[in-house]
């Protein structure tokens, strides 16, 4: 009997140990990321890192200004969100409210394909197909612009936005909708006055997660945005090349000597990126939890 008890306890401990691997991984990730990132500030003042407007890592003296990269990430992400949020929410409404069950059963996996396509394939597609189109139609010196990145990232963020919004909209109780229809409202009035407000927190969570996905995307932006570290204007910056935080890390890490100032600067950028997405995740999960309680 106690033998059996011991076995049960042993298994539970093993399972617990596996359970905390995620915590351990996150903890180690923070340690290793921040440790190498903070080493930058032994030689390079943190105030310059935060306020300098130049990222010239190989000039003499080197400039490691965060701002052009941060703003580069933000402008590309903002463009992606402006484009994908209305589109994604509209598609989610279509799938959950207008399409019949059979059509929805086809449309859902089709949008899921977008989530499955590897980012390097998006980047390749953007580079080969979209970049020349943008250059020609807008008559720009180069098609590798923030806008190109925004469009590609917008497409990539769509499945996240669609599937989570669709969940939120579908979970609005049917009784609420029928209540509105029974008062003589049209289907559309019911959708935008009753269903959408009721699903709003779920939809906002979807948007936040979409933002997180877009800001952390690397290969696609790296292949289509031209990668020049200048502070973008708005909206004119959309039509010029930019360099994002993610692309900077992926592009430059291969060329830097390990342990150099530049190496640590890339970790510092990584830390900023991590903190940004961390905050976005916390907000998204907070919203998501709240809407679950409401229903």
């Amino acid at each position: 009997m106690s033998n059996r008890h011991l076995k049960e306890k042993g298994i539970e401990s093993l399972l617990f140990a596996s359970g905390i691997v995620a915590v351990l991984a996150l903890f180690l990730l923070c340690i290793f990321l921040f440790r190498d990132g903070l080493l930058l500030f032994e030689a390079y003042p943190i105030s310059s890192f935060l306020t300098e407007t130049k990222w010239f890592p190989t000039s003499d003296p080197a400039h490691f200004g965060l701002l052009p990269l941060l703003l580069g990430s933000l402008i590309v992400t903002a463009g992606a969100i402006i484009f994908s949020v209305p589109l994604g929410i509209a598609a989610a409404i279509y799938i959950s409210e207008l399409a019949g069950p059979r059509t929805a059963g086809i449309l859902k996996p089709v949008t899921e394909i977008l989530a499955g396509i590897p980012s390097v394939v998006y980047g390749f597609f953007g580079l080969v197909i979209l970049v020349p189109v943008i250059q020609r139609t807008l008559d720009l010196p180069t098609g590798q612009t923030a806008l190109t990145g925004s469009i590609m990232l917008g497409i990539m963020a769509l499945p996240t936005i669609i599937s989570i919004s669709e969940d939120a909209i579908s979970s609005v109780p049917r009784a609420i909708k029928e209540g509105s229809l029974a008062l003589g409202s049209t289907k559309w009035q019911t959708i935008y006055k009753v269903t959408i407000p009721a699903a709003l927190s779920g939809i906002s969570a979807a948007v936040m997660l979409g933002v997180g996905r877009a800001i952390g995307e690397t290969m696609t932006v790296m292949m289509v945005t031209g990668n020049s570290a200048v502070i973008p204007g708005f909206p004119s910056g959309l039509f010029a090349p930019v360099k994002t935080m993610t692309a900077t890390i992926a592009l430059e890490m291969g060329e830097v000597p390990q342990g150099s100032e530049h190496f640590h600067a890339l970790f510092a950028i990584g830390s900023v990126l991590f903190i940004t997405t961390f905050i976005i995740n916390i907000i998204a999960n907070h919203i998501k939890r709240r809407y679950r309680f409401n229903l």
């Binding site: 290793f32 190498d36 690397t218 890390i249 890490m253 990126l273 995740n281 916390i282 999960n285």
Partner: peptide, 19 residues
């Protein structure tokens, strides 16, 4: 921790793996 790992950009995982 799981939620945040899921939302961490893959390039950050790359930095972590490197370090």
């Amino acid at each position: 921790a799981i939620n945040n790992l899921a939302g961490t950009p893959s390039v950050v995982f790359g930095l972590f793996g490197l370090a």
